[in-house]
Design a protein around this nucleic acid. Sequence first.
DNA 1: TTTTCTGCAAATGCTTTGCATGGGA
DNA 2: TCCCATGCAAAGCATTTGCAGAAAA
Lengths: 147, 147
Amino acid sequence: MTDPQTRYTTIVNRLRENDHKLTPQRLAIAKILAHSEGHPSVETIHQALQGDFPTMSLATVYRNVLLIKSLGEVLELGFADGSNRYDGNKPYPHPHVVCVKCKAIIDPDLESLKDMTAEVSAETGFKILSHRVDFFGVCKACQTSIK
Amino acid sequence: MTDPQTRYTTIVNRLRENDHKLTPQRLAIAKILAHSEGHPSVETIHQALQGDFPTMSLATVYRNVLLIKSLGEVLELGFADGSNRYDGNKPYPHPHVVCVKCKAIIDPDLESLKDMTAEVSAETGFKILSHRVDFFGVCKACQTSIK
DNA sequence: TTTTCTGCAAATGCTTTGCATGGGA
DNA sequence: TCCCATGCAAAGCATTTGCAGAAAA
């Protein structure tokens, strides 16, 4: 994981460079994205800020996540069920492991990803630019939970 | 690619086994899914059937794709732009290679996929159930095309 | 005949947009 | 001061659902 403080600074700088105002709401959203613990959804971000900004609207979260995404500082993960999750800590393509029960998302380090990319290239002749690699399963905690 | 005729028969049998009526609309949708040329969307399927069923509603397509999916006979591919595409020819998780220029989609055979799944399991402790592995790049033809 | 399926329209649920006010720079 | 940003509500969009009539078995 990248240092959240560093990521936060980077995002704020990028906002400044592009002449976007640094409102308290915007900075608060940027801070959450810089951490991106558990890969938050818009809903999660909104709820997390209810304490500090009781009147903050969902629209503001949507607008700012979209803005930061347009600056290339957040990775959007759209899923088949329509849910969108965000990662502003590692805003570049990387593998994910998703728990189908508790919806937790983990970033594994996969040694074999480089080899697989090479294999794809060799077999198809494609020049590979990016990827979306997700695994779905049940996390340790959910495997042992009594329910 | 699996023989579309075989896939069609399998889907129809599965429908019969589960006591679902074989309406003309349902069978027509099953036939398109059995071929799944170009990984059709609901919209695409609906338009393709306008000739034979001018009054067919989108709801019917949605309901039947959902039904066949619930029988495990179609793979749903949700993309970041919100579009959902379906594959009833190979209804199980498999890797895709997408050309970002001409939108061609290839199904590569990746030897390293099994190893990667094992690596994910070993590193995270997850019990892996399925995956979504897509690579994006430029195909051979588009690499050499003069533009 | 019985039960499911279809077509239509209304209702979702998530995301975006219009507008007037509020607040950065 | 000058605009951009926010909050609210309304509008969009793709998908789902309720209902009455139509069709499969």
